[in-house]
């Protein structure tokens, strides 16, 4: 029998207890989100979207159930929260989730606008990017870096 890892705080391998399941000195896998239950969280997805909602359930893959979920769309210094309702999020799409400061829930210095306004702003931004792209394409022969 080898000695436990010398790293401080390292868990020794679980020993089978006399009554069945091994005794673990670390929390069972996938329970790290218990502290976040019933809290309002901001969730960043892999595609860049931001979802805000109250965490109601989760599992070891970080699949989540969010109540009163909204998608926060930010364009420049304006943002809008688009209601989504009850949402089940597949864990693989989650990048990070953070507790929102209840006093400063909105991004500081940002203006809240309607969903229609933010969609229009998003469209304008994409159009601008597209035009920039085509201009760049036309001047490609100049070999700008």
């Amino acid at each position: 029998m080898a000695a436990p890892l010398p790293l401080g705080g390292g868990a020794p391998p679980p020993q089978p207890g006399p009554l069945g399941p091994p005794q673990l000195d670390y929390p069972p896998p996938g329970t790290a989100l218990v502290e976040e239950l019933d809290k309002k969280l901001l969730i960043q997805l892999r595609d860049g979207r931001k979802i805000i909602g109250v965490l109601r359930s989760f599992d070891q893959f970080a699949n989540l159930v969010l109540e009163e979920a909204v998608e926060r769309i930010i364009v420049g210094a304006r943002y809008s929260d688009v209601p989504l309702g009850m949402y089940l999020l597949r864990g693989e799409n989650l990048v990070l989730m953070g507790q929102l400061d209840p006093n400063h829930e909105a991004p500081p210095g940002m203006e809240a606008v309607s969903e229609a306004a933010i969609r229009e702003a998003l469209r304008a931004e994409r159009e601008e990017a597209r035009i920039k792209g085509t201009m760049r394409g036309r001047f490609d022969f100049l070999e700008l870096e």
Partner: peptide, 15 residues
């Protein structure tokens, strides 16, 4: 900018 109102977070190991 959306991260300014976040003071603690959980990061999925896979990312």
């Amino acid at each position: 900018p959306h991260m300014m109102s976040v003071r603690n977070c959980f990061i999925r190991g896979s990312v």
